[in-house]
Amino acid sequence: MLSRIADSMYWMSRYQERAGETARLVEINLLYLLEAEEDMSEEDKWLPLLKISSSEELFSELYGAEALINSQRLLQFISSERGNSNSIRSSVRLFRENARVARDRISKEMWEMVNELWMSINDRLRSPLTAEKARPFFVLLRNEISRFDGITANTMMRGESYSFYELGAFMERADMTARILDVKYHLILPDLSRVGSALDYYQWAALLKSLSGFEAFRRKYHAGFRALDVVEFILFERDFPRSIFFSVETMGRALKTIGLENKERTAGAYFALREMLENTTAELVFASGLHEFLEDFLTKLGDLHAALSEDFFQ
């Protein structure tokens, strides 16, 4: 297939996934805040979100260096801000733009769905998103994105195009899951004495819920939320479709379909990623620092992305 179209298939699904994952990211933050037992400043509540999406700089560029970080402004920044290319609106727009470029490769049903989605999201985001309206909006968005997944699974030809679609989706999912796990780190790090407290319980539960993994985790680990188990589950659970291991394994299958002959750089980057997950355990990760592990993982993911661009998209 055309390199440019492969690139668009890949980005179409990355932006699709990014829109949904960004919603998860904000959702989990809102839940944390709901459970917070003490007063937190608006800035403490929302700054971590800017940090993990690496957008502090853009935020002050758009609203001024002195701009207060508050829920209203942050929700705007993350949901409807046109100047933020990772906002939900921008993600859905770029999701559709890339679908438009790859339109002769995707099914009619997929095109109509993404087209409708863009029109309805753009419409809803014309008025500012408030904290009260945020949750139903996120639920709707996530459901619609899942519907697109279903339509794709049921209408799109398997093969190279589909594999680039999967590659993009799971690349983005792995990236965002790592970042979501990192929110937890940012939020609890200042106060390690709270580990194991009631607050901690709610926070881990909220994290699992935002990753749609609450029930699955419960079934597997029964009572309690040991930090170690939760991290084990999110990083390494083979059968959980939002775990990092699952994402990386799915990417591997997609790469196999696309073919890695003469694509040493991509092959090398992928195996580095794979190795990182195989030669460790949750205990070891905790011992050397979860945040550091996640950072290293995100770097390797970036390497794989760069390799794909060089080997396939040019």
């Binding site: 297939m1 055309l2 390199s3 440019r4 179209i5 492969a6 438009r100 339109r103 002769d104 190279e160 696309i258 396939f312 040019q314």
Partner: peptide
């Protein structure tokens, strides 16, 4: 896109193609 899709052929931009020795090629994966 409509015509490319209906005919089942590639929809290409100029940058997707290159000419070598008077032959035009598509840049594919």
């Amino acid at each position: 896109t409509f015509l490319a899709k209906e005919m089942g052929v590639e929809l290409a931009e100029g940058r997707d193609m290159v000419t070598i020795n008077d032959i035009v090629y598509l840049k594919t994966t």
